[in-house]
């Protein structure tokens, strides 16, 4: 394990804890952005530059801006925080704990597939290689997903269109 990996994992865990433990929701969002950054760092260590950049653009750059946007509007603070009943906290702890147990049990005996330096492909994870896989082997699912996203975008533009007679200024 490289020191960079250890450092990134340390920051990732710490900021993920910060998301849950921070009292102020805006701080939670900022911790979540930091978590996404460390995940992008992990992608870079795994030689996936494209995935790292897209993770930053889509999650840290767009989705989290919307999160922050909504939370700033709501003006949440410690006084308005709803107090959950003890039973809900108990149930959440049990559910989360059993998920952790299952994950640990499942991953305990996994031996990571070691890489072979002799025939390691340094281009794996690069954008052109990813494009080849997407358009050759998974062309149909990829195109369907892109049509879905385009439809969502066209729908939002249609919603924003002015209807006849609506103009008031």
């Amino acid at each position: 394990m490289s020191p960079l990996f250890l450092f990134l994992s340390f920051v990732a865990l710490l900021s993920a804890l910060g998301v849950v433990l921070a009292k102020n929701p805006v701080h939670s969002v900022l911790f979540l952005i930091l978590t996404f950054f460390t995940l992008s760092g992990h992608y870079l260590l795994l030689n996936a530059q494209f995935l790292a950049a897209v993770n930053i653009i889509v999650y840290a750059g767009a989705i989290m801006v919307l999160f922050l946007f909504v939370i700033m509007f709501l003006n949440l603070n410690e006084d308005t925080e709803p107090h959950k009943p003890a039973l809900a906290k108990f149930a959440a702890a049990i559910a989360g704990g059993s998920l952790l147990l299952i994950l640990v049990a499942a991953l305990r005996n996994v031996s990571p597939a070691g890489y072979d330096p002799a025939n390691f492909d340094s281009q794996i994870g690069m954008v052109d290689r990813l494009g080849m896989v997407l358009f050759r082997d998974y062309a149909l699912p990829f195109e369907l997903a892109s049509v879905l996203l385009l439809a969502a975008m066209v729908g939002s533009v249609m919603l924003g269109k002015r209807e006849t007679g609506e103009r008031n200024f």
């Binding site: 950049a53 840290a60 750059g61 801006v65």
Partner: peptide, 13 residues
């Protein structure tokens, strides 16, 4: 090799 995406990511931040 993802230079343009890098610029885009930083701009979105």
């Amino acid at each position: 090799n993802v230079g343009m995406l890098y610029v885009f990511g930083i701009v979105s931040l």
